[in-house]
Design a binder for these strands. Structure first.
Lengths: 201, 201
DNA sequence: CACAAAACATACTAGTTAGTATCTTTTTTA
DNA sequence: TAAAAAAGATACTAACTAGTATGTTTTGTG
């Protein structure tokens, strides 16, 4: 195989397995050894492509994690149509479609935020970046809702954005403790109520 | 010193230091060695009182963590006075009074939920218990607000309870990423808005 | 095709981990 | 006060950790 292609492929396999293991078992308890066993490669290969576990962690956050949040939570905000439909689709309906795996292991980003958000400035910064772009995309959507005349102008867009994100990340942690979806249904009712009051009659 | 008193005292010192280190550095990366160095005792003392790290973890959750949540988030819900004042005091004003330490390291319970909520059934269960009693206390308060005629009857009390808890835990994680309180202020505005719409005019 | 460089493998290091075995010290009790 | 039991200290084990040193294999290039 071509060398640069092979290199990229190997790095991608390492990132994918690292992401999966971080999600399933946490960052700190996932060792380079475990990751490399999962990739069926060896430690030599790892340290040829990455200089440290920290470098891999940052790569997982800034590439894998960021793109996932973009795809799942940010891009759908740009869809055409009613602002409330868009919000309901991303924050409310979507949570119902999660696989059992995703419900049991929570939000990969939220897990990292709570496990290593206060551990290293570099992680803190990389994770904050994702939250900030999510927040900005939400603010943009809410502002457009105000212009369209469907959302009250007196409402703070950033406050709504932060509150929505907080509740979403919060429930994804709490859901891990339960073995059914009742708690999710309650979150959904609570959110539906919240969205309703943003709406101009 | 009296033997049973000495034993209780030692166990309490271990629990206190363990809780502090779990909060500052996480559960999995806090070793028995580190805890016992902090207590100025030795490993022999630890394994005389506890049979494993898991047993200590469960003890920290069911005694220390539970009592903290009770004291800070559940008992204040029983205070006399306006339901909305009580909710604002626990979910809104209180967050402003947090120390820098508490802002930087987040909610000890939420940290554990996200780090080990999917790690061991025993931890899952112990943490769920705390959330459940918090939720029940909130439901009780909201129901009483309905009876007093200050909260709309059509609103689901459990939905509001879960949504409030989710947002609170969510923001305590996200706050860790920032080095100022702007994001907290936005959460507070978002929450104030949410509480307002529960209110019967 | 020879040689260089990249990709990967093997074998190690020093430090850390949960837990155990066995010791000494302190407290209780007969 | 002597024996017993609890509290605590010391010294270990085997497994695991991030990272390194040095080997072999694969790929690119003159």
């Amino acid at each position: 195989m071509q060398q640069d292609l092979k290199s990229e492929l190997t790095k991608q396999v390492i990132i994918d397995e690292a992401f999966r293991l971080f999600h399933e078992n946490g960052f700190k308890t996932t060792s380079i050894d475990k990751i490399m066993i999962a990739t069926k490669l060896t430690k030599g290969a790892f340290y040829h492509h990455y200089k440290s576990k920290k470098e891999l962690g940052l790569e997982v956050i800034s590439s894998k994690l960021q793109s996932r949040v973009h795809q799942a939570m940010i891009e759908p905000l740009g869809e055409l149509g009613d602002v409330f439909n868009v919000l309901e689709n991303t924050f409310l309906h979507r949570i119902k479609t999660f696989s059992l795996y995703d419900k049991q292991h929570g939000c990969p980003m939220n897990n990292l935020i709570n496990e290593i958000g206060d551990f290293e400035i570099a992680y803190q910064f990389a994770l904050k970046n994702i939250i900030e772009s999510w927040k900005l995309a939400l603010i943009k959507l809410i502002e457009s809702g105000k212009k369209e005349g469907v959302i009250h102008e007196y409402i703070s867009s950033s406050a709504v954005a932060v509150f929505l994100i907080s509740a979403f990340e919060g429930i994804r942690g709490i859901r891990k403790l339960y073995d059914d979806d009742l708690i999710l249904d309650e979150y959904i009712s609570g959110l539906a109520l919240y969205l309703k009051q943003l709406k101009k009659v």
